[in-house]
Design a protein around this nucleic acid. Structure first.
Length: 548
RNA sequence: GGCCCCGUGGUCAAGCGGUUAAGACAUCGCCCUUUCACGGCGGAGACAUGGGUUCGAUUCCCGUCGGGGUCACCA
């Protein structure tokens, strides 16, 4: 009786690993091409941190003509959430980050290295577990949850390291005969890795982001195959990333401390280990403490939040790149119109510590992003958003020709208007351009009904002409101001405030408020042009009528 | 608690032995011959702390403090 017999007894049907080694040959890629992956577990929506990882991983691959794939890590069936896979796939699609290989919907996938869903790879993991078992590099553990708990309790009481290792690993020294006997007796078991490491020795690891990190070797006999026959994360990681040809593992830095284990696993399995890039997670300030953005507490943790708010996916990616690399901002300033695909992200320049999520900054990035859009693009995006989330806005936008004019206001100039941060702002932003009932007129300096009435009436009767160019238009407002005793130049007013009731700016404000119901708007000349003569006259008349 | 990572203005961050310690967001003021936004100019605001090493430390070493991660048949 030897380990081979034990392996055959436990995994009678498992294939020899040579089968898989041949089935999944080395990828034929150009020198330096990077293969990365996004490997979420389907336990809910995509987290902004997950998107961040995926963005970084995907960029690293794309920059080198490599491959970016999506692997679903569903080895914990208890935690699996319905439709999560579809959610993941859709979120990546929303951000224009669909993978080259992997799941493309709940049941289908792309690529030659699949299945890309771990629950479908059970036999593969078992083949490799059998391989380790046959060599005595793994063993069966029959400890119950209670026994494990008892071990832990003892360790804690003695204030020593907890875990299943060394002398605490009860089943580690079971003989092959004993293990076989227990299996034949129907005892429950799991497969554990027989660690070759020693806690008093150090291993060196070079992480692409974190740099040189030394750890004690791993000496824990971790579980590789659980009682349901599925692998643990660690084992699946080693097997999958080897078979799938991953060259660079980009993942959250919570995994950093598992590196010794992972390296050991790769070595004992005879695999070449990938390079690791552990990224710092995105944090949030919670009463003075930093913590990871939480799925439960923070709405902005969910990637869908941005979609619902109408923050363009481009903007979210720009913001994330901002966090990832400080050189991105400089690059963007120099290349305002290039797509972010052209930006070269250096993994080794990425920040080592977790950044606090900054919504204000995101919104600023978003404003800039949207300001670079053409009116056509703004229309399209706003319409698509409205179509899903805001029926009223959709209705407003139904007249595309007019909407295009509205979105074109102050957009054609060298310094386009920057006032939309998210599509959910649009309605509030443009509603006065439509046939709404203005009820509130927040007149400012000039606020006597009689004065207002005079200005508006005179403007309608004598000065308004749709055909005027901008200079003529404004000259007329100046003339009108003078005619009614207001300063037609602000400077003149400032020099001699006592001589006038108010100045041309104040007169303009009256017109603006009467026209739009607000004190702040984009350029009034353009607004009038877009509204057209009838609407302008009607608005002004109606404002007069509403003077008390 | 053990192990590991991190600590530059409110936030994101350059700099990594000698700098007036960049830049962006936010904030304040001024300017942009009508508002707001944009843009321009300017202001305020930082190297956690204590020891070393050095002619000289934000940069290197050690301690302290602070923050984070990890120690599952979860990923």
């Amino acid at each position: 009786m030897n380990y081979q017999d034990l392996a055959n007894l436990v995994f009678p049907d498992a294939k020899d690993i040579s089968f898989y080694e041949e089935k999944y040959p080395r990828r034929n890629l150009t020198e330096g091409a990077i293969v990365t992956r996004f490997a979420p577990s389907p336990t809910g929506f995509v987290h902004i941190g997950g998107l961040y990882q995926a963005l970084v991983a995907r960029k690293a691959a794309k920059q080198t003509d490599g491959v970016f794939f999506l692997r679903i890590e569903d080895t914990d069936q208890k935690r699996e959430v319905e439709n999560a896979i579809t959610g993941i796939v859709n979120s990546l699609q929303d951000f224009d980050m669909s993978p080259d290989e992997g799941q493309i919907n709940a049941t289908e996938e792309l690529g030659n290295y699949g299945p890309y869903k771990q629950s479908l790879r059970k036999e593969i993991y078992q083949a490799y577990a059998k391989y380790l078992l046959a060599q005595g590099k793994a063993y069966l553990c029959f400890c119950s949850a209670e026994e494990l708990e008892a071990i832990r309790a003892k360790q804690e009481a003695a204030k020593i390291r907890t875990g299943y290792y060394g002398v605490w690993a009860n089943c580690r020294n079971l003989t092959v005969e004993e293990m076989i006997k227990k299996v034949q007796n129907g005892e429950n078991y799991i497969v554990r890795f027989k660690s070759t490491g020693r806690e008093d020795r150090k291993i060196k690891h070079h992480d692409i982001i974190k740099g040189n990190v030394d750890f004690p070797e791993n000496d824990q006999d971790i579980v590789i195959i659980k009682s349901d026959g599925l692998p643990t994360y660690h084992f699946a990681h080693a097997v999958d990333d080897h078979l799938m040809g991953t060259t660079h593992v980009v993942r959250s830095d919570e995994w950093l401390s598992s590196v010794p284990l992972h390296l050991q696993l790769f070595q004992e399995l005879g695999f070449r280990a990938p390079k690791y890039a552990h990224i710092a997670p995105i944090m949030k300030n919670d009463n003075g403490n930093k913590r990871k953005l939480s799925k439960r507490k923070d709405p902005e943790a969910a990637v869908d939040y941005y979609k619902k708010e109408g923050i363009p996916s481009d903007a979210v990616k720009e913001y994330l790149l901002n966090i990832a690399s400080s050189s991105f901002e400089n690059w963007r300033r120099q290349n305002p119109n290039l797509p972010i695909e052209d930006f070269d992200l250096q993994l080794n320049k990425m920040s080592v510590s977790g950044a606090l999520f900054d919504m204000v900054k995101l919104l600023d990035v978003s404003k800039s992003t949207i300001s670079r859009y053409t009116a056509e693009k703004v229309y399209e995006e706003a319409y698509n958003w409205a179509n899903e989330y805001d029926a009223e806005l959709k209705e407003l936008l139904s007249d595309k020709e007019y909407a295009l004019k509205v979105f074109g206001i102050e957009r054609k100039n060298a310094k386009p208007r920057k006032d939309i941060a998210k599509w959910s702002d649009v309605k509030e932003n443009i509603s006065y351009m439509y046939d709404i009932d203005i009820t509130d007129y927040p007149y400012q300096v000039i606020n006597e009904p009689e004065d207002i009435k005079k200005i508006l009436q005179l403007y309608i009767e004598k000065y308004f002409n749709e055909a005027d160019d901008k200079q003529t238009w404004f000259d007329k407002i100046k003339t009108l101001s003078g005619e009614l005793g207001y300063a037609s130049e602000v400077k003149a007013f400032k020099e001699n405030p006592g001589m006038y009731k108010a100045h041309v700016g104040d007169v303009s404000t009256v017109l603006r408020v009467a026209l739009t119901g607000r004190t702040n708007t984009p350029d009034m000349y353009e607004i009038m042009q877009v509204m057209g003569k009838d609407k302008v006259i009607n608005r002004l008349k109606s404002a007069i009528a509403k003077l008390s």
